[in-house]
């Protein structure tokens, strides 16, 4: 049974369809990369799945249940979300912030129990931020902040993790640290991931499936193996510029990049 089903999903801003009749089935344990140009509807799609945006038409089904029928707490137990960047200054310590992720699992008085503390400590360790737990959130660097956000999402223990360009503001080293943390958590929890990314190589190397959006519609939807076999043609039409394959000796595979019009 599919964990997530999108049926004829259409999202509009004003009158313009940003996501247009998207159908998708995501099964447990899959890692999906969502790629496409800026404005293609990637973030809108992920936010709609997270319940942050209401679709104009169609539906989001989680375990065959319509998303809108979920209570806020039940939804948070199924879906966790890591935004691109936080738009606010959070006045809590790292530990307290991550503990907020346990809200949906806590009882009426929201008092953390031993299990909650254990899960927070585990998530902080997975994300390599355990030594930052007493630091205040505003004092973190961008890379640290994203890993703390990931830890906050991990403690939700949701089966579906949505990541909206989580590394777009990070340098390559911090990006690597973030994906290492994600890999570690994935190995341990085996949840399902949907990640919006501009990094084609992440899509090919780290994900099992790729969803490529073009002007809100599906341009490609399938396994990353098949996607790789159809590159760079598929990338050329998706982005409108020529891509070139480069050999990666360490990964023993090809990576893709573009250096302008030839």
């Amino acid at each position: 049974m599919a964990l997530l089903n999108l049926k004829d999903l259409t999202v509009q801003y004003d009158q313009a369809a940003v996501v247009n009749r998207v159908n998708l089935s995501v099964h447990p344990g899959e890692r999906w990369a969502i790629i496409g140009r800026n404005g293609a509807g990637k973030s809108t799609l992920v936010k709609t799945i997270a319940g942050l945006i209401k679709p104009k038409h169609g539906s989001v089904l989680l375990n065959d249940q319509v998303l809108e029928d979920f209570s806020a707490r039940a939804r948070a137990k199924t879906i966790a979300y890591v935004p691109q960047k936080l738009d606010t200054t959070i006045p809590y310590s790292v530990y307290d912030f991550v503990m907020l992720g346990r809200y949906a699992a806590m009882g009426l008085f929201s008092m953390p129990e031993t299990n909650d503390h254990d899960l927070v400590s585990q998530a902080l360790t997975f994300c390599d931020v355990a030594d930052l737990q007493d630091r205040m959130m505003p004092s973190l660097s961008g890379g640290e902040m994203q890993r703390v956000l990931l830890a906050g999402a991990l403690v939700q223990q949701a089966s579906l993790l949505l990541l909206d360009e989580p590394t777009s503001f990070l340098d390559p080293a911090h990006e690597r640290h973030f994906f290492d943390a994600l890999d570690k958590a994935f190995t341990h929890n085996n949840f399902t991931i949907l990640i919006v990314t501009h990094d084609i190589n992440t899509a090919i190397l780290s994900c099992t499936h790729v969803l490529a959006l073009f002007d809100g519609t599906i341009h490609y939807c399938g396994t990353s193996q098949e996607f790789k076999s159809r590159c760079p043609e598929i990338l050329n039409t998706l982005y409108g510029i020529p891509f070139e394959p480069f050999a990666s000796t360490q990964q023993n595979t090809l990576v893709y990049g573009t250096w302008g019009q030839q």
Binding site: A50, G51, R73, A80, Y81, L100, A104
Partner: peptide, 16 residues
């Protein structure tokens, strides 16, 4: 506590 983290995050953490 969740309102101070922003509406989006509060929503995805289980707050209506």
């Amino acid at each position: 506590d969740h309102f101070l983290t922003g509406d989006s995050l509060a929503h995805t953490r289980g707050i209506n």
